[in-house]
Structures are given as C-alpha cells and as structure tokens.
Simulated assay, not measured.
Amino acid sequence: MKLPWMSRADRRRWRSARTVADLGELMARWLEGAIASRPGYQPRFGPDEETAHLVPTLAALCRTGYVTTCSQPGFAGTGADGLWWEQRAAVELVVTDHTRLPRLLGAARAAGMLVRVNDHRRGGVRDEPVVVTTRDGEPVTAFGGRIGRADMAIQWTGLDRGLYDQVAHGTYVSIAAPEYGPAGERLWGVLDFLTGLRREEPDDPWTRSAG
C-alpha cells in the first residue's frame, strides 16, 4: 500500500532546491522514476501510464529551463465509460528565464501549434484556455488560463520561498496540437528539436513552410 504523504527524504529534496535549474532536475528525476513524489501531485505516484512515452521529451524540457507541470498524449477512441474521447497532444510548462521564451513560442507557432500564454508578472499577457479533451464532443479539459493564488500554492507546496516566488511569477505556457488524436503527437518532435534531444527538424509541413 502506498502511503498518502510524501516521504521525508523527498520533502527535503524539494525544499533544498534553490534555483529553477534545481527544480527542473528534480522534476526530470520524478518523471524518470528516480523520485517517488513531487509537489502538487498525488504522493508516491509517478506520471500516468498514458504519458510514459513522453518522459524523455518532458525530462529534456525540464533540464533545459522549461519546467513542465502537466501533459497528455494525442488520443481518439472509446473510453472506459463506452463514450468517444478525443485528446489533443498538449503540455503546460513554466518559464522564469524570459530570454528562453521567444525560441519556445516561435518553434511552437511555426509548427502550427495552439499556444496560450499566462505571464504571472504584473501586467503580463493573460490568454484564454484552449480545450484539449472532449467526451462525446463536449469539452472536458482545458489547458491554460490564469492560475489563482491558492492553486499556485498547492501546485508548488513545500518549495523554498525564494524559488516559489520565481515560479509563482513566471510565464506559464500551454502548447497543444491543433489536431485531436495521434496525428497531434507531432508536437513532441517539435519540442525534442527545441531541446536538442533530436538533431533533425521533424518532417512536418508546418515546420518546412516556416523555414
């Protein structure tokens, strides 16, 4: 049986992080299964099984200064409830180094992705959410949108105060494929090229036309 709280060792790991690079490394290690728990997620549980194939992409993003907070693969099919579900491949992440933003946003937009930005600095951009999951054609889940103070505290509970202030005032970016289903999995190739996980640009007509 898994205990419903984070271990002391894991709490110390997260509290000891002082920089966004530290945070990104811990998030990458959680994704890879080296750490049992992370802030804002059910203790002693790793990523959902459906996202297992995304781990290399997400870990590389975290180690490159783009700390991921949520993701899902592209999917279309009958769910456990017998109804038709469709998902856009999508990821949410936080960027605190604003010199990194242009390359991320440029790569995503050049590939035709749907991009939503929420800058938590005073007077920053606040885009509306984008629907990423439907159930029998009805919206179920959206990525993006303003994160409230209470939700931010839950998402990053246990962090050093200085580091918390950085991520709480960072820029939150949601990127989703325009297509529902497996075709939208091209998103991960775009992000892999951004982080250097792959050396050749994805074979994508959007990317080629943007070049």
Results as ranks from 00 to 15, higher is better:
40 G>V: 06
45 F>T: 15
38 R>Q: 12
50 E>H: 05
51 T>C: 05
58 L>S: 13
60 A>C: 10
56 P>D: 12
61 L>C: 04
45 F>D: 10
32 E>Q: 15
40 G>I: 02
49 E>W: 03
34 A>G: 06
55 V>S: 08
30 W>D: 08
25 E>T: 13
62 C>W: 01
30 W>K: 14
47 P>Y: 00
52 A>Y: 02
44 R>C: 05
46 G>E: 03
51 T>M: 04
39 P>Y: 02
53 H>K: 15
37 S>M: 06
56 P>C: 10
61 L>A: 04
39 P>L: 07
25 E>C: 03
34 A>S: 06
61 L>S: 04
59 A>E: 12
60 A>G: 11
50 E>T: 13
36 A>H: 08
45 F>N: 14
45 F>Q: 15
62 C>V: 11
43 P>D: 01
35 I>D: 03
39 P>R: 06
31 L>M: 09
57 T>E: 12
38 R>L: 11
42 Q>I: 00
48 D>F: 00
62 C>E: 11
53 H>A: 09
28 A>S: 13
57 T>V: 14
32 E>H: 14
46 G>L: 03
54 L>S: 03
29 R>D: 03
42 Q>F: 00
41 Y>P: 07
57 T>L: 09
42 Q>S: 04
62 C>K: 12
45 F>K: 15
47 P>F: 00
52 A>K: 13
47 P>V: 06
61 L>F: 11
29 R>E: 06
29 R>K: 11
62 C>T: 08
36 A>C: 09
43 P>M: 01
26 L>W: 07
54 L>N: 06
45 F>P: 03
56 P>W: 03
54 L>I: 04
38 R>P: 08
33 G>V: 14
46 G>Y: 01
25 E>H: 13
32 E>P: 09
39 P>M: 07
54 L>H: 06
26 L>R: 09
31 L>S: 02
34 A>I: 11
57 T>R: 14
54 L>R: 08
42 Q>W: 00
53 H>M: 08
50 E>L: 02
46 G>D: 06
35 I>P: 01
59 A>Y: 05
42 Q>T: 02
39 P>K: 06
51 T>F: 00
26 L>Q: 10
57 T>A: 14
30 W>R: 15
27 M>I: 10
44 R>I: 05
38 R>C: 11
49 E>A: 02
61 L>R: 14
31 L>R: 10
39 P>I: 06
36 A>M: 08
29 R>V: 07
34 A>T: 09
29 R>L: 10
30 W>C: 11
41 Y>S: 13
55 V>E: 07
43 P>H: 02
32 E>T: 15
38 R>K: 15
55 V>G: 05
29 R>F: 05
40 G>N: 06
43 P>S: 02
44 R>F: 01
47 P>G: 00
30 W>V: 14
56 P>F: 05
34 A>Q: 12
